[in-house]
């Protein structure tokens, strides 16, 4: 489990120190799926980098702790090994001239033996369905395929967590779905913890917990249903609730005990019960 205790982060700029994140307390259990949402500049990417061990907090602790123990003598998060980070533009994340070499890049950094690297590259290619592209140069892949290569490269290092920082925002809807499906499959099959930073509702609704960030603090966290039920956090977090949730609210004006529905199926079911 990744644990953040009273984590603050500020940057020195010419105009003085800017506090980007303040007093963040969060826990990410092993194998969980969490969405992090919030308006532009709310500190999501900074949080993602802190979680991945790429930044050190100005104060507070980011640590990996055993789920059983109550108080943490945790250890530092090691980038790549414990947490793999994938971000927005796939073009800027691929390092090597072919798909398989790119996947091997992180493994080379781990100083693994050759046989082990070959095994892991093969596994990663298979998991994301990239086998036929193994010798392709990155520029001959589609955006979705490139992003899958980026995920495969991170995955080959066998991290306990995968952090996706708006990793699908440059992709078209079908590529986006395909990538997210691959990620959710990895969570189900390998038990990898997933943290998605996103602006997209369908990605939020696929998760079991969401954290709303605004102005560098956590203003709400919990199940998506509960978060969308609290109107303040929805407004402050600049969230646009799903259409079905907004329709549910309108229904509640007439029928006060109409449930808050997050998708169309639920809504239709609730509406049928009325009549």
């Amino acid at each position: 489990m990744i644990r953040l205790d009273k984590v603050s982060f500020s940057i020195e700029t010419s105009a003085g120190a800017v506090q980007v994140l303040r007093d963040i307390d969060l826990q990410f259990p092993d194998g969980s799926i969490t969405a992090i949402v919030g308006p532009n500049g709310s500190g999501k990417s900074t949080l993602a980098r802190l979680i991945s061990g790429l930044l050190c907090p100005s104060s507070g602790v980011v640590a990996l702790v055993d789920e059983g123990t109550a108080s943490p003598p945790g250890r530092r998060v090691c980038p790549g090994v414990d947490v793999g980070l994938v971000f927005q533009n796939p073009d800027n994340q691929l390092v090597a001239t072919t798909v398989e070499d790119d996947i091997a890049f992180g493994l080379e950094n781990l100083s693994l033996s050759h046989a082990e690297m070959v095994n892991r590259v093969d596994d990663a290619l298979d998991m994301l369905g990239l086998r036929e592209f193994r010798a392709y140069p990155p520029h001959r892949l589609s955006g979705g395929q490139k992003q899958k290569v980026a995920i495969a490269g991170v995955l080959a290092m066998k991290p306990a967590f995968l952090v996706l920082d708006e990793a699908t925002s440059l992709l078209d809807p079908s590529n986006r779905q395909e990538v997210m499906r691959a990620v959710f499959d990895l969570n189900r099959e390998l038990g990898i913890g997933v943290i998605v930073v996103t602006h997209l509702l369908d990605e939020v609704l696929g998760t079991s917990r969401m954290v709303v960030l605004a102005g560098g603090i956590v203003i709400a966290s919990g199940e998506p249903r509960d978060v969308f039920a609290a109107e303040d956090s929805v407004r402050c977090g600049g969230l646009v609730p799903p259409l079905s949730a907004r329709a549910s609210r309108l229904m509640q004006l007439r029928w006060p005990d109409f449930p808050l529905c997050l998708d169309v199926d639920e809504f239709v079911e609730a509406a049928c019960l009325l009549s």
Binding site: R49, S52, L54, C78, P79, G80, V81, G84, L85, F87, N89, D91, N92, Q93, V95, E100, D101, A104, F105, G106, L107, E108, N109, L110, S111, L112, S113, H114, M117, V118, V121, A150, G153, V154, M157
Partner: peptide
């Protein structure tokens, strides 16, 4: 791009002067 790439490389465990093996 260079900025992003540096972060991506670090995120995959790259450190300057660290021994690496070869694929």
């Amino acid at each position: 791009r260079a900025d992003d790439l540096a972060i991506a490389m670090e995120a995959r465990g790259f450190r300057v002067n660290q021994p690496r093996t070869r694929y």
